[in-house]
Every structure is written in C-alpha cells, then in structure tokens.
Design a binder for these strands. Structure first.
Lengths: 381, 381
DNA sequence: GTCACTTCCTTCGATTTCGAAGATAGGCCG
DNA sequence: CGGCCTATCTTCGAAATCGAAGGAAGTGAC
C-alpha cells in the first residue's frame, strides 16, 4: 500500500533500536533484540550494505573491547512532520533517528479548513525538502499533529472543538493522495507524550500534561502510547470542585478547561484590565511578579493537581511531565506538586516524579518522528 | 529457582494459548503465535508426548476439514488459588486451563495475622489436594489474593488498612518455604480484573470495579493487568463532591470509600435503625424495595459514576465491568451508567459498555489461575 | 610491560524454523 | 453421489538462526 523502507522482519527491529537510541552497537542489539550475536552481525551487515546503517567510530569501553558504534545513515531518509495549532503550524524535517534537520514556524489559520491548511503544510514540506535535503535522500514518512481528537483506526478528525470544517475529515487519506508513504495523523498531546517518552528512558508509564491555550494530556503505558478508543488522555472536561459555576464550551458545568486553561486565565486577566494575547504572556507576567497572574496560575495549578490526584492513584505512573507554554510559569508545577503530594496515596507517590517536560517545544514533532518510524518499520510480511 | 513446567521457549506460548482458550487447534495456534504451521505441529507433538496437551475429538468446520481439538491434559497439573477476605477465604483448585475442580469458602480472620492465616490456607490446599486430585497429578503453582496493596516486585503487602500485622509481610517468601513452585500474590481487585478479562475476549482495555465492603478497581491495558508501581487501580480514596464532610480512615476528607462503599452504606442503614451485617444484606433490602436502601445505593452509584467519569475520559476503556457483592443491586449499575453517560465525552462513551461483571464470585480465583499460568510458563531460558 | 580478565565481534557447523507442496478430511451443490 | 472448494495438518528440502569457539581490542592489577 505504501512505499516502505526496504527492510524485512528482524531488520526492522534492529533499525528501530538504533534509531530510538536504545542500542549503539551490535552487542547492544543482541542484548535488546533477543537475537543471537551472530545473527545480529549478519543483519547489521545487510543494513549497512543497503545504506541504512553506518558505522561511526567507537563507543566507550565497558571493561573490554570498545564497541563499534552504529548510526542510522544520514542518507537513509528523512521524515516530514508538522504540529498544527490554532493560528500557526510548526513543521520540519527529521532524520530517521529523530534528529531535527530543520524546524520552523509559520502562520496558518486552522479555521481555513482542512484542504487549504493541509495543502499549505505539504507545500512547506516540499519547500524544505528542496532547500535542505539532497534529492538522493528519500522522504520516508509524513506525520502531523492535530489539536483535537483523532480516530486511530481511520485517522480522521472527530468532533473537534475550535476546528470548523474539520469534523470527520480524512486527514490521512488526503495526505496519502500527495504522498505515497506511511502517513501519521495524531492528536497533538499524544504526539507530545510520545516525544517526551524518549527523554524518560527508564520510565515505562508516563503522563504528559500539556498546559497551553487548552489542557491536553497524553498517556504512555508500558512504553507505548495509549490511545484507548481514540479519546484517551482527555482531562480537560473533568468536573472540578468550585464555588462558582462556569459552563464550558462542551455544554457541561465546571470543566477543568474552563478554570485552568491558558484561555481561561487570559480572559480572567483581561477582566482585571491586564492585556494578554498569548498564554506565553502569562508566563512573562508571572516572571515580573504581577500578583494577579501569579495567583491565577497558582489556582490553576492546584485545580490541575486535584484532577491529577485521581489519575495518579488510578494509573500510578512513574512520571508526570508538565509541558505546554504555561509550564514555564514556575508556580504552576509547584502547586500541581503540592496538590498531588497532599492528597494521593503514599504508595502512589512513593517514587513518583512530577517534573517539567524535558523535550522542549518540539516535543510533538519529535514524537511524530518516533511514531512514524514505528509505522515505517512495521512488519510488512 | 522454582519448579516450572517442563517447557521451553515457544512451547510455553502454545500451551498458554490453549490454556486461555484462545486457540483450540493447530491451525489456531499457527495463526495466533505467528509460527509456521509446520513448526506448530512439531511443538504440539512434543507437548502431547510430554503429557501436557491432549487431542480430544474434532471441532466445528469453518468450511473445510474439521480441526482436531486440543486441550490441556487433565493430568498436566493443578493450581491452588485463594482469595482472602476480612472474615473468610475462598479457595480452590483449578486445572491448568483455569477450570475449577473444587472451590469452597471457609471462615478465617485476617486479623489473626499473616503466619496463622497463610498456614491455614496452605493446610486447606493440602486437604483439597489429597481429597480431589490423584497424587500423580502435580501441583504447578500457588496464588492468593489479598484485600490490600501488594508491591509487585517483592510481592509483599504494603500499607494495608484493616489488616493488622500484615504490613511489609513477605507473603510470597513465606509461601515459598512451603511450596517450591511459582507463587503469586496479588491485590484482590487486580485478580478479579484478570479473571474478568477472560470473559471479554474482544476487549483489550478494561476497568473492573469491585463494589463490596470496600471499593476496589483493577485495570487491564492491552489485555494485560496494569500494576503501575504497585498501587494502580485505586479509586477508593478519590475525593468526591459533597455538601457534608466525612474524614476517611486514610486521614483525608470525603474519600469515595467513605460515601459509597458497602461499609459506609451499612453504617448509614444502621443509623436509620435497619439491621445489616454484610453488604449482601443491602442487596436483599433493595430487592425488597426498602426505600432507604434503594436511595442509598442509588446515591452510591452516582458517586462511583462521577469518579468513573474522570477515568473513562482519561483511560477510554472498551468496558467497565462492575462486580463485588453490591453489584447485584440493580440500581447501582443503573446510576453508575447514568452518571457516566451524562458527563463523559461522547467520543469516550461511543462504544463503551458498562455492564455487570460476567465472571461471577470466583472471578478472583480464576484470575489468579490466569496469572499463575503466565508465571509458570514464563520463558526460563 | 605483561598477564589475567572483560567485552565485542566473527566464523562455522548444528539445529531450528520456514514455506511450498501434498495428503487428509470435511462442506457445498447440482 | 461425485466433483469442487476450503480448511487442516504433515512432509521435506531450503533458509534462517543459534551457540560454542576463537580472534580482536580493550581495561586494570601487579
């Protein structure tokens, strides 16, 4: 159906282990793949001959002969990835090991509808490819993040809010008409979680909270993105305890999003006569020690923390990583921590780490790379 | 370390597929295991020679030759399993495919401490083995459910409530001094979830709520029990929205358990002057249409449902199964459903099933069987 | 420096696994 | 009832995989 990397069976596993940085040498591969060392050597030989892997110097000794370090060949291919926001899109090219070659941000109104938006992204990809990648290096996959729910089976957008014209649109099919390659379409918070997971190699169970204009969350279970039936990870429409009562856009009263999202904080600040245009502005206000902003952020953190309390008890993750533009405001994570430590079972918080996201603002793009590689290397048989 | 079934590598996978009822013929095994049909035939031959598998008649045709049905040999072995409650223990013997040979319930005070209790269970096992199993059929594993948290790495009981003397007790190690076999020690709600999972073969993601004296919950992700760091599945100490304020035994105010558990309902009824001694009595009262009981159960269901709302949005399971002695009260599940349908995202409830547990009162014992088999067949290499 | 030891990687014969082809056994239909 | 179809299971040579042995390239102790 799609042009795939010319690998078969075990070769794909090996390539993935190298690409994701889990293995750096033949010995690593043997340990992690479960194959015999001799088989690994053979497969690696083939992959090098095929131009997908390359040997590059030697690693550090672990007490014996130094390993010969393996890398994905820079000529093996590139991935084109995008992360769509409400008013802009971040997009770029990665090599097959997920290292960014070029990343840029462009203005782009999601309200223009899927056709226009996706074509604009594809045009940008073509432009970047022409400029930054020799024509001998092939494009191996295309992926994009969407600020709304994506049905994992059909890769369509389903019942998004704030995305007029997108409901039910077959994003993957549309991209497939332009690229005969593996295509990935996924919710942006899920991509972010997948990207973040690479920075916590010792943790199998992760929650990644994205605190930006909205509130998103992605879940990694046993090292893999948990999709459920397509909606997994939603925390924005959880009911919070509150004295007042705000009706959320979803029609229900007192959703977390209506109290603690960047959008909610911005409108609260504007009511106090403080001018803000983006969630990042709130961070600036907090850094400048504007009391209204700090207090608002602290309350938002406590509310998010209270919701996380339930989920930490239930899911019992190793790590809760907090990202998104608001996460740069220090009081946010502090009050999230306080709420969780206070209320959760000691057993659940015993070794729990609540920390700022490590992957930075390109987390979603990196995550798209990881998942795309997985898709491109899936056993074709 | 332990006496294991005399199988190696792929043989174990095949045996497990037959034992769990996923495969009934060589052809099934080939499809599910990914091995070539010829390899499957060879391995099956070996397993039959070893006395672990047996051929038994033929199955129904799918349009061609009828498959020769495979079963675990009744002589292959038995598993001894127990489920410990506060004042009693259910225990029994299963064959390797998880079919009960004998199950009984005995009085047993958990407050007598681990040594006494576990020895009493082991004595009961020996008795049942002598009575119901020919001595030529070997015992292959021993497992028990505990009404409290169990650390999965050490299989110790950790910070249990209502289990004086058990904190930190190495249950598995203690049993291992008496049985040189695979030992399983697991939280009772988790066992129940594992047992229930076999009744929902089409569902990969399951939540199983146990509504009895306490409120427990087990989670199945991708067909496997999710343990997290050992505490996963706890929902009893989630804070509920409430006008009044009750302090729970855990020290926090307004835990779900303090409002909606069988224990809480019983004390509420007793305050109204209605005599109850076990959660099952509440079900009787509801069946007799006693208004106080019905109303209490309905409120409890709504509270549980409100908590599930958060978890359904987040985890997005295929099925929420409700078990435990209280689940026989019809209004409970109805009001859980109502709360979840009302508040959850349409996307999350689209194909969600909220249903009474299917596995019956022996769910935990059956779950122990499933997990024990897994442990006994784990690759030894 | 040298000797013992560790790790990494390859070589090569033994073993396992595969997969195409065939044998077996039943259903379906005129 | 007799083809024709389908699915199950087995046979057997080809191919992939393994694992023991050994060479290569280090580290660390004396």
């Amino acid at each position: 159906m799609n042009q795939r990397l010319p690998v078969q069976g075990a070769q794909g596993d090996l390539l993935r282990l190298v690409a994701t940085g889990k293995a750096e040498s033949r010995a690593d591969l043997a340990r992690l793949s479960g194959l015999a060392a001799s088989s690994v050597s053979l497969r690696v030989e083939e992959l090098i001959d095929a131009g997908l892997l390359a040997e590059e110097g030697s690693g550090t000794s672990r007490g014996g002969r130094r390993p010969r370090r393996l890398r994905l060949s820079p000529d093996a291919g590139v991935l084109a990835v995008a992360d769509l926001g409400a008013h802009h899109v971040r997009l770029g090219l990665l090599d097959l090991s997920g290292t960014p070659l070029v990343i840029e941000e462009r203005g782009c109104e999601i309200a223009d509808g899927p056709q226009v938006t996706l074509d604009r992204i594809a045009d940008a990809f073509d432009e970047l490819l022409a400029t930054h990648v020799p024509s001998s290096v092939p494009l191996r996959g295309v992926g994009t993040g969407i600020p709304g729910p994506v049905d994992p089976s059909s890769q369509r957008v389903v019942t998004p809010s704030r995305m007029p014209g997108w409901n039910g649109f077959p994003v993957a099919d549309h991209l497939a008409t332009r690229y005969d390659l593996p295509i990935l379409v996924e919710n942006d918070a899920n991509l972010m979680a997948a990207g973040e997971a690479r920075w916590w190699p010792a943790s199998e169970n992760l929650m990644v909270v994205k605190a930006g204009t909205g509130i998103g969350c992605g879940v990694i279970v046993n090292g893999h993105l948990h999709r459920g039936r397509g909606a997994a990870g939603d925390i924005s429409h959880v009911r919070v305890r509150s004295d007042s009562s705000i009706v959320c856009a979803c029609g229900h009263p007192d959703c977390l999003e209506a109290y603690a999202s960047g959008a909610a904080l911005m409108s609260a600040l504007q009511e106090s006569g403080i001018e803000v245009s983006r969630p990042a502005d709130i961070v600036t206000l907090v850094d400048d020690a504007i009391p209204e902003a700090t207090s608002l952020v602290r309350t938002a953190g406590r509310r998010i923390g209270e919701v996380l309390t339930v989920l930490v008890n239930f899911f019992n993750p190793d790590v809760v990583a907090v990202g998104g533009s608001l996460s740069a405001a220090e009081p946010l994570i502090t009050s999230i921590r306080a709420a969780v430590w206070e209320r959760c079972l000691p057993l659940a918080t015993r070794d729990l780490e609540i920390a700022p996201a490590r992957a930075g603002r390109d987390a979603a793009l990196l995550g798209a790379g990881t998942l795309l590689l997985e898709a491109a290397l899936k056993v074709t048989s």
